[in-house]
Simulated assay, not measured.
Amino acid sequence: MRRHISDGRETRIEGHAWILGTHSGRFISTCTEGNEGRFVADLIRPNCEWDEVKIDLLLLPFEKERVMNIRVSPNRPRDCWYWGFDWDIVYSVKMAYAMLLCSEALATKPNIAARVEGEFSKCSFCNSFAESSLHLFRDCRVAWWVWEGLGVEGVMEEGGSGVRDWVEVCWKGTVESKYGKFMVGYWALWELRNTVVFEGSDIDPEKVVRRMMDVLEEGDGMGTVAEGDVVGIGVVSRDGNGAVLWGLSIVRNQNWDPSMGEAVAILDGLQEVAQRGHRNVEIESGCLMVVEAL
Score class of each variant (00 low, 15 high):
residue 199 E to T: 04
residue 199 E to K: 13
residue 200 G to C: 09
residue 200 G to N: 06
residue 201 S to P: 01
residue 202 D to F: 07
residue 205 P to Q: 07
residue 205 P to L: 05
residue 206 E to H: 03
residue 207 K to R: 15
residue 207 K to A: 15
residue 209 V to L: 11
residue 209 V to K: 12
residue 209 V to F: 11
residue 210 R to V: 07
residue 211 R to E: 13
residue 212 M to G: 02
residue 212 M to E: 14
residue 212 M to W: 08
residue 212 M to Y: 11
residue 213 M to Y: 01
residue 213 M to E: 11
residue 213 M to H: 10
residue 214 D to T: 11
residue 214 D to H: 06
residue 214 D to F: 02
residue 215 V to A: 12
residue 217 E to M: 07
residue 218 E to M: 12
residue 218 E to Y: 03
residue 219 G to F: 04
residue 220 D to Q: 14
residue 220 D to K: 13
residue 221 G to Q: 05
residue 221 G to C: 09
residue 222 M to L: 05
residue 222 M to G: 03
residue 223 G to Q: 03
residue 223 G to K: 05
residue 223 G to Y: 04
residue 224 T to M: 07
residue 225 V to T: 15
residue 225 V to N: 13
residue 226 A to I: 13
residue 226 A to Q: 13
residue 228 G to A: 08
residue 228 G to E: 06
residue 230 V to Y: 04
residue 230 V to N: 08
residue 232 G to N: 04
residue 232 G to V: 11
residue 233 I to M: 12
residue 233 I to T: 07
residue 235 V to K: 03
residue 235 V to A: 06
residue 237 S to M: 12
residue 237 S to W: 14
residue 237 S to T: 09
residue 237 S to Q: 05
residue 237 S to N: 01
residue 238 R to H: 02
residue 242 G to Y: 05
residue 242 G to N: 05
residue 243 A to E: 07
residue 243 A to M: 05
residue 244 V to Q: 00
residue 244 V to T: 09
residue 245 L to I: 15
residue 245 L to Q: 13
residue 246 W to I: 00
residue 246 W to N: 11
residue 248 L to P: 03
residue 249 S to A: 15
residue 249 S to I: 12
residue 251 V to M: 11
residue 252 R to Y: 03
residue 253 N to D: 08
residue 253 N to Q: 10
residue 254 Q to I: 12
residue 254 Q to P: 00
residue 254 Q to L: 14
residue 258 P to T: 09
residue 258 P to Q: 03
residue 258 P to W: 06
residue 261 G to S: 06
residue 261 G to T: 03
residue 261 G to A: 14
residue 261 G to C: 03
residue 261 G to W: 01
residue 262 E to L: 00
residue 263 A to C: 08
residue 263 A to S: 10
residue 263 A to N: 01
residue 264 V to N: 01
residue 265 A to D: 06
residue 265 A to Q: 06
residue 266 I to K: 06
